[in-house]
Design a protein around this nucleic acid. Structure first.
Length: 488
RNA sequence: GGUCUCGUGGCCGAGCGGCUAGGCAGUGGUCUGCAACACCAUCUACAACGGUUCGAAUCCGUUCGAGACCUCCA
């Protein structure tokens, strides 16, 4: 097994050889969604990207503990630590309990992840379930002198922290630049410095979600939960922290500051950031009204695309781009991916039927090692996909008698392709329900058409063929005179 | 305004000093009653202008263009 894995660490800005803290084990933390709305396709890309990471680490034989949180409190409308809690706001608008909002969108999130064939994390902690841990963490930070209380709220002292550590090292910012560019100063009188961020906020009377603490009845700051939960389940320092590029600043920057100030050590060894998905050239975002929901894509009911798409086609589409590149989602691009996806699976299917020879005309070992080389190079899925297509071409050549494969190599190639397609890329074949009713119905239709063709009644045979095509069933007249059909 | 990233053939998208990326579309074939499907083969390229180098899409500089972050966002 080749474990020469290189990971691009956003903190150092370089590709680094991956070494886990505990041999054979990996701690992976990914920032999950704030469950106040449906996850859109852009959100999904991040989770699909890290699902690939999780899957490949497992494929390499690591025992991975994958933690992905659910943010169900503390995420305010504005990061100036003012404004309404996102979940509470939605609850007020819909006239339900905040926890009803949380429940509704958490369920939707899980269903969506399942459609995309994302594996579940090992632990999926919620912010509200870890209030005590968050309070403990705040206390530690206060004890170490990096936070102060003001009017029942607790703020992180960025200036003080920056004297001994580099605040901004992840996002490549200098504190002076940040100071000069802080615009929104409203409601920040309690802070010593506008860059300070809330660890604990005192709740107003009307505030729905609040808990007692040594400082006030209130709620935790958004950045805190990830620090508290990652520490609890993965330790004070762990291997990989992932999230969307847009969380780099301030969220992840604050996490580093919190973890470092509480435990006197850098909490994360490798930072990984997934890039954005754009829709017709612009960043997908709910607030900019430029987003699409997975469900709208699966059903085809949306204003951007004229047909529906299989979740696996969308996943495959995303695998054709590197996770650190922006990816533009357009109708042409997804249609191209759909055809490629079918080609890949047709090739895999053909491999099962292909005849073996004494010798292989091509080195299957080299073919397979290219799969690993691609993934070991910072999870380069597009290269992996290209290599899989090379394998498909080889398979087709074998089928045409232009190449050959030994029975042993066939078994190896089959195993490797299935491993990488199903277990690593996380694709799965259409579970199109071919009911026995449809099967027998098609037997009759195919038979009728066969009769018509024998009678040279082309009008009837073509009518059947074209009609079926419209219904999404592709008739195939094979060389041997037999007719088969498929519905992808 | 500040910080940063990126500009690759008709489209999507890898590569990032010398070696075919890949997919889709196009074109030419094979197959076919005609097709479709499928398969085979194949044409288009590195934003512009300078520089470094034996050699640059790949490094440096300038210009133009796009996007991200600095404010909620995956």
């Amino acid at each position: 097994m080749n474990k020469n894995l290189q990971i691009y660490n956003s903190h150092s800005g370089k590709k680094e050889s991956f070494e886990s803290i505990n041999k054979g084990f990996v701690g992976l933390y990914v920032c999950g969604p704030t469950v106040y709305n449906y996850v859109h396709l852009g959100n999904c890309r991040t989770f699909i990207s890290f699902d690939l990471v999780y899957r490949y680490l497992q494929h390499l034989g690591y025992k991975v503990r994958y933690v992905r949180n659910i943010t169900d409190v503390g995420h305010l409308e504005s990061d100036a630590d003012t404004g309404e809690d996102k979940i509470a706001k939605k609850a007020r608008l819909e006239e339900v309990e905040p926890m009803e909002i949380v429940q509704q969108y958490t369920i939707n999130f899980h269903e969506t992840m399942k459609r995309f064939n994302n594996l579940s994390p090992n632990i999926e902690p919620t912010a509200t379930g870890h209030i005590l841990e968050q309070i403990d963490l705040i206390q530690k930070i206060i004890t170490n002198g990096f936070a102060y209380e003001a009017e029942g709220s607790v703020y992180f002292d960025v200036n003080k922290y920056n004297k001994s550590h580099a605040y901004g090292s992840l996002s490549g910012r200098k504190i002076e630049d940040l100071m000069n560019n802080t615009r929104d100063l409203d409601g920040q009188q309690e802070k010593r410095n506008p860059l300070d961020f809330a660890l604990w906020k005192k709740a107003s009377k009307e505030h729905l979600m609040k808990w007692p603490s040594p400082w006030s009845i209130g709620f935790p700051g958004w950045h805190l939960e990830c620090s508290a939960m990652s520490t609890k389940y993965l330790g004070e320092s762990f291997d990989i922290h992932g999230g969307g590029m847009d969380l780099k600043f301030p969220h992840h920057e604050c996490e580093i500051a919190q973890g470092t100030s509480a435990n006197c050590k850098d909490p994360v060894n490798y930072w990984m950031h997934a890039n954005m998905l754009t829709l017709n050239g612009k960043k997908m975002s709910k607030s900019a009204d430029n987003s699409i929901l997975p469900e709208e894509l699966f059903t085809g009911k949306n204003k951007h695309f004229s047909k529906s798409y299989n979740p696996m086609v969308i996943r495959f589409f995303m695998m054709q781009a590197h996770y650190r590149s922006t990816l533009d989602f357009t109708e042409d691009a997804i249609n191209a991916a759909e055809k490629g996806y079918n080609r890949l699976f047709d090739g895999l299917e053909l491999l099962q039927k292909v005849k073996t020879s004494d010798k292989s005309s091509e080195s299957v070992e080299i073919l397979i090692s290219a799969f690993y080389a691609a993934m070991n190079d910072d999870f380069n899925a597009p290269i992996l996909v290209a290599n899989l297509f090379n394998a498909v071409k080889f398979i087709n050549h074998i089928n045409d008698g232009k190449a050959s494969i030994s029975s042993q190599d066939k078994i190896q190639l089959d195993k490797a392709m299935k491993d990488f397609i199903f277990n690593v890329l996380g694709l799965k074949q259409d579970t199109e329900i071919k009911s026995s009713k449809l099967d027998s119905l098609m037997d009759i239709i195919v038979d009728l058409r066969k009769q018509a063709r024998e009678d040279k009644n082309w009008a009837t045979s073509d009518k059947i063929r074209d009609g079926l095509q419209k219904a999404g069933i592709q008739i195939k007249d094979n060389k041997d005179g037999k007719t088969s059909w498929s519905s992808h």
